[in-house]
Design a protein around this nucleic acid. Structure first.
Lengths: 241, 241
DNA sequence: CTTATTTTTATGTATTACATGTTTACTTAT
DNA sequence: ATAAGTAAACATGTAATACATAAAAATAAG
């Protein structure tokens, strides 16, 4: 018997992943190699259970994960059908800025800067008259707010206004992926500005929203990029090696 | 019949959610409001089961999803402990370019352009001598390959070399989030270039990798941005409104 | 006091049963 | 014969239960 326990210790270097993990990997592999298209059905839980020699709860646990990513959509009687995975929307659900490490929050803060600098070409490719009108409205609102006193609630309104301006930029890009990323970025940026850097959320460079809008109307991508870089200059100054 | 399809669109997009979905949402809510930190433990499955009045398998199904995101790490006897969610790594696992819609693939293609244009400031902030040496090696290899015949295998090597150069750029940025995004982008870019645009993967503008490297050594972010924009000009030309 | 063993306990896995909603097939009425 | 209504089948959703397993805690042995 003591020999038995000896073997037990020696034989198991424990690369343990649970069965559900393995099933998930198997199914993903199956999907990758199968070259399926959205709308195709995958084997029934019962069939998977028999094919992989695991119980149905384990199968369900694995499929549940794919469901969370929007990869499958299982309906009664029909089984599970493949869907186009929505890469970022699932991520939004689990994003909790306070759970992230400072390093990750910093990464997201930087990501925002990278995106808003690099987005210029898309803006000039896709901007429409109504977009410019919307931005004009936002800038006009900002002007009104700036002329008022700096009461706490006005500060909040200014922050909202600022968010609206930059958010509209992502929207004009016409790129859903960028918009998804922005939804991930926003709560993190707020957290970073409040807790990590303790900077004034409205401390922008010499270039104002108004000037950015004018450039978007009459300028070109290159000028817009450099103006945005200047606009975000205080944000860039927060960065460290 | 045409009337029928009309109604289908107008009526019910099916807002059904399973219990596991609801449990997942409850737990996420609990975590968000609780202001927890990595290392904290969450209630045991049994407790959750009683508190939410659902069976343990349902609880497990919900927790399994959080496990997939790396949010929790459950160990026997101890229960589940919170971890810092790795936002993008889970997404890499489920990325299957052939499952994406053309629109999504186009979005990812554009994301790459946005990132590589916007990344310039980070590069100049974080570049280190060894990074430049690595890039020099890549560029030298490219030069050797370019002087050889255009055999299929040499073409493949050139594509690998190109990937190495641009990949190194992301690495120099020192931003893990950008590197994660790149791992999502790479297989999609390949797919898009092969199937969607049918463009030459190596068709770059007048600016070469060598010139980009020289700018990274002696130039500034602004010049680098515009050079990268020129380098990617044929990619930008693929874009449509 | 250290080490080995047992016990405890929470998760991992499996079996089983039943509920629920869809599809398919069948029946019935006009 | 076509249309509507009904019943049967079937796959997923939910639940209860039992046992395996591993890790921590408690206890016993040296």
């Amino acid at each position: 018997m003591e020999d038995h326990t000896e073997h037990k210790k020696l034989l198991k270097p424990i690369p343990v992943s649970t069965k559900a993990d393995q099933v998930e990997e198997q199914v993903l592999q199956y999907l990758r190699l199968g070259n399926f298209k959205p709308g195709d059905t995958i084997p029934k839980e019962e069939e998977l259970s028999k094919a992989l020699h695991v119980s149905r709860p384990v199968i369900r646990e694995a499929l549940s994960r794919l469901r969370m990513f929007g990869m499958i959509d299982s309906r009664k009687r029909r089984g599970a059908i493949l869907r186009q995975p929505d890469l970022f929307s699932a991520m939004e659900r689990v994003l909790m800025p306070n759970m992230l490490s400072n390093a990750t929050r910093r990464d997201i803060f930087e990501l925002r800067l990278v995106l808003e600098i690099g987005i210029a070409d898309l803006l000039f490719l896709r901007k429409k008259p109504e977009d410019l009108l919307a931005l004009e409205k936002i800038v006009a609102d900002e002007q009104i707010l700036l002329e008022k006193d700096r009461t706490p609630e006005n500060i909040l309104l200014l922050i909202e206004n600022d968010l609206a301006f930059h958010g509209k930029i992502y929207q004009i890009s016409g790129n859903k992926m960028l918009q998804s990323l922005q939804r991930i970025i926003i709560p993190t940026i707020k957290h970073v500005i409040d807790h990590q850097f303790k900077m004034d959320p409205l401390s922008y460079g010499k270039i104002t929203h108004f000037q950015l809008l004018e450039l978007l109307k009459q300028g070109n991508p290159e000028k817009f990029r450099e103006a945005m870089r200047e606009h975000l200059t205080y944000h860039f100054e927060q960065l460290s090696v």
